[in-house]
C-alpha cells in the first residue's frame, strides 16, 4: 500500500449561494495517475484551485504530504512539491523557454541577494546547475531547439510542453494537469499520453482533468467522477465506464432522450 500524497476531506466551495463543490473526499496516492472527469461546470477546476491554495475551500480540509495545507498559499504548496498547468495556457510569454523553466526552479536555487550582486561562486554554481537541469528537462520533452525562443511566440502545443517543463523543473511530488489536451489533435494527444506516462516514471504523481474519455481510460490508474460539485464515484477506468450513474451524468437520463 502506497502512502497518500494529497488528501481532500469534505471539501465544499460556495460561490454566492451556489454550491460549486459539495463534500468532496478524495485521496491521491504517491505513485499514480489519477484522473478527474465530469461534465462542464462539474467543478473540476474549482477543485484544483481549492486544493492548491488559489481559492481556499469554504469548508473541509486539505492534507498535502501528510501536513494540513488547508490555509496555505499557492507558493507554499509549490515549495513543498506541488506543480500545475492551466486550462488556458499560462507561460511567461516575454521570457525565453529556458527562463521559463528556470522560473520553475525558483525555489531550488538557493542564493541570496548578496551572492547575486557579488557573483559569488555559489551563485555561479547554482546557475550552472539550473542550466544543466533545464537542458535535461528540455531534452526529456523534446523542445531543446526552442531553448532561446520566446515562449509567447511558440505554437500552442509547444507552449503546453513549456508549461509542463516549468512544472517538472520544480521537482514536484505531484503535478496537476488541467485539461492538457485542450486544442490538440489526435497525434499530439497520443504523444502527450506517452509523455505523461514517462513523467510518472520520473517520480511525481499526476492528477489530471480531461474531457477526452479515451485518453483518460488509457492513461489513468484511478478515475474520480464529479457531477454538479458532488463526487459520483471513484474507481478503475473499467469500473467507471461501466457504471450506469456515470453514463447517465454524461449522456443524460433515459427519459430525456
Amino acid at each position: 500500500m502506497m502512502a497518500s500524497i494529497l488528501k481532500m476531506e469534505h471539501i465544499c466551495k460556495n460561490f454566492a449561494g451556489l454550491k460549486a463543490l459539495d463534500d468532496v473526499t478524495l485521496d491521491i496516492q504517491e505513485d499514480e495517475i489519477f484522473g478527474l472527469i465530469g461534465p462542464n461546470g462539474a467543478g473540476k477546476t474549482t477543485l484544483f484551485n481549492a486544493v492548491s491554495g488559489f481559492s481556499k475551500p469554504s469548508s473541509g480540509e486539505v492534507e498535502f504530504c501528510g501536513e494540513n495545507y488547508t490555509h496555505k498559499s499557492t507558493n507554499e504548496y509549490c515549495i513543498n512539491g506541488l506543480a500545475r498547468t492551466f486550462q488556458n495556457i499560462r507561460v511567461f510569454g516575454d521570457m525565453t523557454v529556458v527562463e521559463n523553466l528556470k522560473v520553475g526552479m525558483h525555489k531550488l536555487i538557493k542564493t541570496s541577494l548578496a551572492d547575486i550582486i557579488l557573483q559569488t561562486r555559489r551563485q555561479k554554481e547554482e546557475e550552472e546547475k539550473a542550466r544543466l537541469k533545464c537542458q535535461e528537462i528540455m531534452k526529456f520533452l523534446g523542445i531543446e531547439e526552442h531553448a532561446d525562443d520566446y515562449a509567447g511566440s511558440l505554437p500552442y502545443g509547444t507552449q503546453r510542453l513549456v508549461e509542463i517543463g516549468r512544472a517538472l523543473a520544480s521537482d514536484p511530488k505531484l503535478i496537476l494537469l488541467d485539461e492538457p489536451t485542450a486544442g490538440m489533435n489526435e497525434q499530439e494527444t497520443m504523444d502527450l499520453m506517452e509523455l505523461i506516462k514517462r513523467i510518472r516514471k520520473r517520480g511525481p504523481a499526476v492528477l489530471v482533468i480531461e474531457h477526452n474519455m479515451k485518453f483518460m481510460m488509457n492513461l489513468c490508474d484511478r478515475i474520480a467522477v464529479l457531477n454538479f460539485g458532488k463526487l459520483l464515484m471513484v474507481g478503475t477506468p473499467d469500473e467507471v465506464s461501466s457504471n450506469p450513474e456515470v453514463i447517465e451524468a454524461y449522456l443524460g437520463k433515459e427519459e430525456e432522450k
Binding site: 507558493n75 506543480a83 522560473v103 520553475g104 516549468r166
Partner: peptide, 17 residues
C-alpha cells in the same frame, strides 16, 4: 526571472513557488 514572471503572469508565478 521572478520579476519577469510576476509581470507576465502573477498567478502562474505563484504556482512556480
Amino acid at each position: 526571472r521572478a520579476y519577469m514572471a510576476l509581470r507576465d503572469d502573477s498567478i502562474a508565478a505563484s504556482y512556480a513557488g
